[in-house]
């Protein structure tokens, strides 16, 4: 809060806009996680939180600290690169785990039915 008074309006406007946009996108992504029906639809909701929501807030943070400290502060790029490299791995592993579990459950149910039929 103490630095906010020193921020000129041309920097404050984009920072505020990016923060509001990032927050809204984050909440929309988790809304998708909350209200969609099946798991395979739900996995697409958090993807927008991770990419665009996090991206907006990281850019806002970079802009804010660069202007208030009047030097280039770009170490948020590290978080951006890390998240962009790891989020695909996470979603792929969860998707695979879900698919294997569903296939296994259906196979078990089928063999159970067969045993009952005999």
């Amino acid at each position: 809060m103490n630095f906010a008074e020193t921020l000129p309006w041309w920097a404050a406007l984009p920072v505020a806009f990016l923060l509001v946009l990032g927050g809204l996108i984050a909440v929309i992504g988790t809304l998708g996680l909350f209200r969609l029906q099946s798991f395979y639809q739900r996995i697409h909701g958090p993807a927008i939180t991770v990419t665009l929501g996090a991206g907006c807030i990281l850019v806002a943070s970079m802009l804010y600290f660069s202007v208030t400290q009047s030097r280039l502060v770009i170490h948020e790029l590290l978080i951006a690169a890390f998240v962009l490299m790891t989020a695909p791995v996470v979603s792929m592993l969860i998707m695979r785990a879900a698919l294997y579990r569903d296939l296994r459950a259906s196979r078990e149910a089928a063999s159970h039915d067969e045993a009952k039929g005999m």
Partner: peptide, 28 residues
């Protein structure tokens, strides 16, 4: 390719089916 496809919201790479080298993809 898997990183790019998974980063794009709306598509998730599931796996490569080894028999015919096909990619199994889930589209929103």
């Amino acid at each position: 390719l898997s990183c790019l496809i998974n980063s794009t919201p709306g598509t998730v790479w599931v796996e490569i089916l080894p028999e015919k080298h096909e990619l199994l993809l889930h589209v929103f």
